[in-house]
Write a protein that binds this DNA or RNA. Structure first.
Lengths: 245, 245
DNA sequence: CGTCACTTTGAAAGCTTTCAATAGGAGTGG
DNA sequence: CCACTCCTATTGAAAGCTTTCAAAGTGACG
């Protein structure tokens, strides 16, 4: 996937001029240098929704899930966090969601205060912070379309493709999360997720070496099922977040 | 609803100190002063998803819907925009969604370039821009939970309550959008929305003077149906976006 | 080899959608 | 002022997709 470093200096779309800063090459993740690395075991929580949002986190290894819970226990996973992602940059006084380790996870943290103080002073970091927020927003909009208007099969295939785009190697993807996590992410039940997987395998669109390692066999068919037309692919190339000036 | 002016200087949660700037009282909306006011008729589009994101908009009057469409025509409305909202602050080179007038709408626009140039130079505006983005993110997370895990009735009631919070007067709310808009916002069909409304009326939880003007009769019952417990109410008070320092 | 957690599969139930028809309202023209 | 049209909303009945409930299968671990 794109590291923040890569996403800051894309080919500039013609419509704008991009401000050029003295190229220190500083990226958000660098702010965490020198901080101790903390490890979390699978299922451990890093923070809970509603906690005072005292820290910003940099994920070095592993995968996290971020989720919201209804009073009666129903859960929605609103995103998965991969290495290189900066997490907890909500602007509110309290975290908007809980974060839990899916796999073993290594993170570093810095206090919100100093994170924002630094970002406030450095235009380069500021741009990146905006970029992060806008990438998150873009992903959130995609997810709303998925949850509101896609069928179970479309949701599962969309998910597989998005994992592939983020962390796929060749045509194989790793799904470190459980079926329950996937279900809560897609607004389905574990049974439905399982059935859709089975159905895709029977049709040879995917195959599984083990339950958490899949191979995507027919990308173009899968893309069509997910509703990822060429337009969407096109969009990808311009969804590099940048600060116009 | 809260104007940006109000949301910038809330009671500070105890965990942080808030940077105090020379109080110019400048708000994002002020950046649009002097710009001509443009009018749009209901159903007119202000911009389309994928258009070059050349402008930022300030909504003075009316209500807009912002939506995404699947290749086959299925539509998801990802939000409604009310007066005072600033729209189009995506960070990408192209708009992430289409914006269409629900009612007659009056807007002003400024070029992205100058919007960001100004914001970049003024810490006060910067904070507000972050605030806007984070409010949007918070709303997006709420919506994902709604779409992924709430029943039809819970969705409709949640919607009514959120409209009430944004623009309710006493216990009455205006729903300028059609049932189709509401359905596309809630991931339902118009028939289901209609049935839920009918059901709520039969139980005297709401009543309607006309199809677009409702009275919420039993707020606490409605809140319970929507899954808005006291915790959530509590959250509201700390969801005033601010820049920690 | 037994336990436990996760996953898969089957069958029935349930909720929402689809299809179809009716009703209500605003605007137009005779 | 009424008839007519169009669009939106409501209501009913049947269909469909996903969920729920239940049971069996799989794999990691002690």
């Amino acid at each position: 996937m794109d590291s923040p470093r890569q996403s800051v200096s894309p080919v500039a779309p013609s419509a704008f001029h991009w401000r050029s800063f003295p190229s220190t090459g500083l990226v958000l993740n660098d702010m965490f240098e020198g901080q101790p690395v903390e490890s979390f075991a699978p299922a451990q929580a890093i923070f809970w929704e509603g906690d005072a949002a005292s820290n910003i986190f940099d994920v070095q290894e592993g995968v996290l899930r971020i989720c919201r819970i209804l009073p009666d226990g129903r859960r929605a996973i609103v995103g998965f966090i991969y290495p290189g992602d900066v997490m907890g940059v909500s602007f509110e006084a309290r975290y908007l969601f809980s974060a839990e380790a899916v796999t073993k996870v290594k993170i570093r943290r810095i206090p919100r205060n100093s994170f924002f103080a630094q970002v406030d002073d450095m235009p380069e970091l500021r741009q990146q912070l905006f970029a992060v927020l806008c990438d998150e927003m873009s992903a959130a909009l995609d997810q709303m379309l998925l949850l509101g208007r896609k069928s179970a099969e479309e949701r599962v295939v969309s998910f597989l493709l998005s994992v592939h785009r983020k962390s796929g190697i060749e045509n194989t993807i790793e799904l470190p999360m459980t079926r329950l996590d996937i279900a809560d992410y897609l607004g389905l039940t574990i049974e439905t997720v399982s059935r859709m997987m089975t159905s895709l395998m029977r049709r040879c669109l995917i195959s599984a070496s083990d339950k958490h390692t899949l191979t995507l066999r027919k990308m173009s068919d899968l893309r069509q099922i997910a509703g990822w037309d060429e337009t969407e692919e096109q969009m990808e190339s311009v969804r590099r977040a940048v600060w116009p000036h």
